[in-house]
Design a protein around this nucleic acid. Sequence first.
DNA 1: CTTGACTCTGTTCCATGGTACGGAGTTTAA
DNA 2: TTAAACTCCGTACCATGGAACAGAGTCAAG
Lengths: 130, 130
Amino acid sequence: MSLTIGKLAKQSGVTIETIRYYQRKGLLVEPDKPLSGYRLYSQDAVSRIHFIKRAQKSGFTLKEVSELLSLDNGHCEDVRKMAEQKRDQVAHQIKDLSMLLHALNELVADCKSGSTVNQCALIDAFSGLK
Amino acid sequence: MSLTIGKLAKQSGVTIETIRYYQRKGLLVEPDKPLSGYRLYSQDAVSRIHFIKRAQKSGFTLKEVSELLSLDNGHCEDVRKMAEQKRDQVAHQIKDLSMLLHALNELVADCKSGSTVNQCALIDAFSGLK
DNA sequence: CTTGACTCTGTTCCATGGTACGGAGTTTAA
DNA sequence: TTAAACTCCGTACCATGGAACAGAGTCAAG
């Protein structure tokens, strides 16, 4: 069953503009324009857009998603490496955020007891000096 | 010890342009221009830039970073409220990222185990096949 | 006291991830 | 058959986070 771009958009939960944007960026192929009528898309396009959206939610940029798509089958090693990199990145981010959370908690506690805020406590705690 | 903008840039690991951009955005104060000579920056500016960079890596936008920075000078009642809000936001962010980390770990593990529908478990996952 | 390195200021340009719009052409339902 | 709805195509616009550049002024070393 083929879809016009509007139906494709609705089925895949993005806007028409987004689909066109993905086409411009090479993440989606623009089907040939028939001699008369509108371009038609297959169900595969829906899957592909879902793929893109899922990968984005996992923190991949569109550029990275397009790499994933181009690697696709047969290059599981490369795909795994990208995922591992992402994972390490996210792990680091969590570590930093935990430090910040700690600093914010201390700031809140100090604020509750004292009357003036310890100048620069937050910056000191999070600027990498400790 | 005071620094010209070039030295500040080098010491804090950003470019001069970035410093100026932060000034335009209000994250950094532009020191007064002396009657003759160049503007001079203190060592504090280095920490402040490190703070900004760190916070960015933690997923904050510059706008949010500037909110964080504003916590550093102000009076307690306002600061505490903002700090609590930020703290909750950070806690939430950590939760989301932890889920993402978990997902990425599973993806990597599946990739290694070779339990796939197609040839790559990660691709399968993003394709919604599992 | 001149030359090269640095700074200042304003403005323009870039990528990312879209969104919006205008003026066509096409399709479909009444 | 005609009006509404949809598509096509190009282009412009948006926010974010900078990078680059031009033409001036300023500083420091030989």
